[in-house]
Design a protein around this nucleic acid. Sequence first.
DNA 1: CCTGATCCTGACCATCTGGTCAATATTCCG
DNA 2: CGGAATATTGACCAGATGGTCAGGATCAGG
Lengths: 206, 206
Amino acid sequence: MTERNSAPSLSRIQQKNRELILGGALEAFSAGGFRGATIDQIARHAGLSKPNVLYYFTSKDEIHKALLTSLLEMWLAPLQRIDPAGEPLAEVLAYVRAKLQMSRDFPRESRLFAYEILEGAPHLTEILGGGLRQIVDEAAAVLRRWMAEGRLAQVDPHHLIFSIWSMTQHYADFDVQVRAVLGPGRDPLNEAAAFLDALYRKLLSP
Amino acid sequence: MTERNSAPSLSRIQQKNRELILGGALEAFSAGGFRGATIDQIARHAGLSKPNVLYYFTSKDEIHKALLTSLLEMWLAPLQRIDPAGEPLAEVLAYVRAKLQMSRDFPRESRLFAYEILEGAPHLTEILGGGLRQIVDEAAAVLRRWMAEGRLAQVDPHHLIFSIWSMTQHYADFDVQVRAVLGPGRDPLNEAAAFLDALYRKLLSP
DNA sequence: CCTGATCCTGACCATCTGGTCAATATTCCG
DNA sequence: CGGAATATTGACCAGATGGTCAGGATCAGG
């Protein structure tokens, strides 16, 4: 039904401007969610005019969808990097560290997905129940095996993953609150790294 | 500057309609955030006309602010119910259970605050750095004392509180994702209760 | 350098939305 | 009951916003 199959050739200008637009869209959508962002904002962030943005994407909805799908893989990559052949506790701790690092390096991406889920995931429903579920189930299977082998303490693997997601992304999504509560002169992400390391060591040491 | 000081008397109709409006506003704001909700939606949820809503509140902004402040106390109450004279581990576990119960009973309230923080907390900035910080610091002081007395394992109290917030509210705010990943036929909140109980027992047992 | 394809824009439109207002209905109370 | 205070509403306005379009600028390749 869609085109761009045999000829995905994008001209240099197309490549560059689509990139600019997605960059501006990330800025805008992560700040105010889908409804809070306007095409004009996206255009200004991208350094283009509004009609020009709509020359490359047919609608605001399409920009949003393209942005989400272009970031989803990167967002889920750390989970897939858990090595079934590695040392269990070290693998989990490395995953926690990687997710926390993403909250530091890519807070806008974190907020983008947070908004999307909060809004009911209108653009991600099929992915949530399909690809994401499979990826999580595979990681959960590895964790379960480790637990069965006595190399990791027994806990529900899915909720273990949820706990990692929620605690690490909290420092990106609720940054305002975290900083307000902690007060100035502290480094939330650094403290969180130590806290989470200790937490998962205690929770998972067999 | 403001009125309603010596005479906060609200007629029966006022009382009832303000209540209806705040109820409709909770429904609307928790679904789409401040920008995603329209006064007309609020009015329909409340069973009133749009101009009538604006007869009781002068602006959408005021509705939002009134709703947040009316719910904030209830939202923070469990934290203040931690008893400094109680048994440390039991007190923390009770707090975790209470917060999780709120995710089950009041998911709309949870999402309302989640949106507000994500959007940068434009209506809560003074509260975040003022009242909230103080409440959290007091709870943190109690936790710290317990840890110093050797009745609780040593961890950063602030991040301990953040972890409780993030993990419990996760089940309300990201409900769509949780259910999509777990698949049908499971009870996320019930499983979470067991998981979190085990987690905090291991983390905090001295 | 010419020409067709690609790229870009100002002007414009329809719709939505926050908010106003004059007029009407309802309630309250002496 | 009767009139003042309170509630309610339909009609309306102004600005914002998603999206369109005809025409002009720019670029690629022969």
